[in-house]
Amino acid sequence: MITFPNAKINIGLGITEKRSDGFHNIASCFYPVNWCDMLEMIPAKTLSFQSTGIEIPGNPDGNLCLKAYHLLNEKYDIPPVQMHLHKIIPIGAGLGGGSADGAFAIKMLNDMNQLGLSIEEMEGFATELGSDCPFFIENKPVYVTGRGEVFDTLDLSLEGKYIVLVNPNIHISTKEAYSGVTPTPLSVDLKQLLTSSINEWKGNVVNDFEHSLLKNYPVIDNIKKSLYQKGAIYASMTGSGSTVFGIFDDEIDLSNYTEYMVWSGKLD
């Protein structure tokens, strides 16, 4: 069985509060995009995992795909599989690629073993993997609060819009990103703004991480400015960076981004 875990973007990202458990409360929109990894699983005599494509740092035993298997195996005693992850989505880029891999692994294992898990049950397992993981179970636009696991419906569709994602090959750690942010309650109704016209977003729908990171990494600021110069309706850094996206009515010339990792396509 093969599946294609996709990335997501943050449209607006407010860091609203430092929690007693060390995490932060946020407010954001998660929106899926079709920049995808590839994940294959086949039945096997022993559990194994390998990856190709972009090199994944750290111990492979800590990969979220394997953690997803162990979570389900602990409860359902599922048979072993051979996993092969071909990594395409940039790592540490604010796109949720690792979270998507883990969530899609849960969905694959549910299907392969006919566990019959509900959306809510799969989201519960995904929450144990990480804050962003539950989003990828239903994989549709949502308004997000809490530490990224509390979802509210959002009447937002960007279907047919053209999106460009530019990653300048900079890895920004979560620790670094949060070190430049002072949690502050939202000064605007972000959810209401997101359901207004996209033409109202520029200057109003803000990613709080940009305040410090655009100063620390001028290349990210330059990419954002260039997307606006090319006619973006809205442009922003996604997540804690370093990827920047621009939303357009039509395709644009990408020839001046050849030194970066770039993905473009239509939004669903």
Rank of each mutant, 00 (worst) to 15 (best):
K67H: 09
F49S: 04
L66P: 04
S131Y: 06
S240R: 06
K224D: 08
L193A: 04
L47H: 06
H84F: 02
K266T: 14
L72S: 07
Y217L: 04
F104A: 09
N25Q: 00
T16V: 15
G58E: 02
Y228Q: 09
Y143Q: 09
W263V: 04
D189Q: 11
G12I: 04
T3Q: 12
E40V: 10
M83E: 07
D221F: 13
T184S: 14
D249L: 14
G97E: 10
N63T: 11
V164I: 12
N110R: 03
R147I: 15
N207C: 09
L47D: 07
P141W: 05
A44L: 02
D250E: 15
M38F: 13
H84Q: 13
T145C: 05
N10C: 07
L117C: 03
D37H: 04
S264C: 12
G14L: 13
I56P: 07
A105Q: 00
S20L: 13
I220P: 03
L109T: 00
L64M: 08
F209T: 10
S48N: 05
M237Y: 03
A100N: 00
G160M: 05
E17Q: 15
D268I: 13
G265A: 10
P183Y: 03
G58M: 03
I106V: 10
I88H: 14
E121Y: 03
A235W: 00
M122F: 06
L72A: 10
S212I: 00
S118W: 03
H171V: 14
N204I: 04
S131C: 08
K202S: 13
A93Q: 06
N169A: 11
